[in-house]
Amino acid sequence: MSPNEQILQYPLAYETALEPAAKWAELRGTCPVATITVPDGSQAKLLTRYDDVREMLADPRFARKDLTDGTTSAAADTSEPPFSVPKHGEEHQRWRRMVGRWFTAKRMAALRPQMTAIADQLLDEMTGRGSSGDLKAHFAFPLPVYVICDMLGVPAEDRDLFSYWSDNFLNLSRYSAQERQTAVGELVAYMSGHIAAKRAEPTDDLLGTLIEESSGEGEALTDAELLGTGIGLLVAGHETTANMIGKMVAMLLADRTRWERLLENPSLVRSTVEEALRFDANGGFGLRRFLTEDVEIGGEVLPNGTTVVCAMGAANRDETAFENAAEMDLARTPNPHLAFGAGPHSCLGQALARTELQVALEVLLRRLPSLALDIPATDLERLEGLLVGGLSKVPVRW
């Protein structure tokens, strides 16, 4: 059976936690628009070539599926909770403009000292327990949620609550449907009260700034939109960044020469972060979109209503877009990877994620130059159940 006639089970199989699916290269070469069966039993089309994935992400005919239209097939992206944030058209762009003003380079630079302080505190606690441990549990997982709590003006004593809620939202196997429903209710109740307090007494954090800046422009964000913004930041910005910190460090330690090169030349931290994002072969399910009209892509005409999954990890290994794509080049530039998507729905918080990854790497290099994996890289295990890709543990010694 030719690749074009196969119906593949998705997600695809991987041999090790850090290596790409062997099928990626074959699909890019011979079947760039493959037919797959997703976990709910429905079929979709999988894109693996860089140009096709980028085109899809930027094309308004590839839309997100609303969860309220009664669709139960793969076209219904049940990975996305129904937060009250505009998803389409001018309303979505209005929301992006208002929230995006907060994620400026100047604002991220201002956040760096506090991020660094949090990272140092976490390493103080981790190293105080001994000479080895799980980098993910003690450093990578708490760092982003602590940063997000600071951005939202959440007191430090409530950070653990937010860690639990975030994990509950995205882990499909650890918690029951009832536990997830309860967690959603708890977070909504907490954030609703939090927003009400900020309306009464404005602050200079993200929510306070959005309330103050939008109120004077005739396009104020509603409480529902503010709630969706706060919850969306937690859900989209915690697990993804936490898992990326763990994967990035594992990639660098899997080949010790990479870590040594960074110790010798810390100026490579920024380009290393971008290359880790590109090189990541464990990005999770991928982005699901559906067609609003017939579209030709990859030489195939896909009919209106087709569900399409774009594999950004596969696209980021495309030799037609990246020279020596199978090699991790810490100095690679330019690096137009698709880890944050592309087009009008690209990741709004990518400046924050980049800053967190850079700070995490800078602090680890400074504090733990002797850092090493405590098990062979081939023994690292993928995290099961999460919609975003990650490692279950990152055992290290120092």
Score class of each variant (00 low, 15 high):
304 N>Q: 15
304 N>M: 10
305 G>L: 03
305 G>K: 04
306 T>S: 15
306 T>L: 09
308 V>S: 05
308 V>A: 07
309 V>G: 00
309 V>T: 05
309 V>W: 00
311 A>S: 15
311 A>D: 11
312 M>F: 12
312 M>Y: 07
313 G>H: 07
313 G>A: 15
313 G>E: 12
316 N>A: 11
316 N>R: 12
316 N>F: 04
317 R>Q: 11
317 R>S: 07
317 R>P: 01
318 D>G: 04
318 D>W: 03
320 T>I: 00
320 T>D: 14
321 A>R: 11
322 F>M: 13
322 F>Y: 08
323 E>S: 15
323 E>N: 13
324 N>C: 14
324 N>V: 14
324 N>Y: 07
325 A>K: 14
325 A>S: 15
326 A>R: 10
326 A>M: 08
327 E>F: 00
328 M>C: 11
328 M>G: 07
328 M>S: 06
328 M>T: 06
329 D>Q: 15
329 D>N: 14
330 L>V: 15
330 L>E: 13
330 L>Y: 08
332 R>F: 00
332 R>G: 10
334 P>T: 09
334 P>M: 11
336 P>Y: 03
336 P>S: 11
336 P>K: 00
336 P>G: 07
338 L>A: 07
339 A>S: 13
339 A>G: 10
339 A>T: 05
341 G>N: 06
341 G>R: 08
342 A>R: 06
342 A>W: 09
343 G>D: 10
343 G>W: 12
344 P>A: 11
345 H>P: 09
345 H>F: 10
345 H>K: 10
345 H>V: 08
346 S>V: 08
346 S>H: 12
346 S>K: 11
347 C>W: 11
348 L>T: 05
348 L>W: 05
348 L>V: 14
348 L>F: 12
349 G>D: 01
349 G>I: 09
349 G>K: 01
350 Q>P: 05
350 Q>H: 12
351 A>G: 08
352 L>P: 02
354 R>T: 10
355 T>F: 02
355 T>Q: 12
355 T>G: 00
356 E>Q: 15
356 E>R: 10
356 E>K: 05
356 E>A: 13
357 L>A: 12
357 L>T: 05
357 L>P: 02
358 Q>K: 11
359 V>H: 01
361 L>W: 01
361 L>G: 03
361 L>A: 04
361 L>F: 08
363 V>D: 02
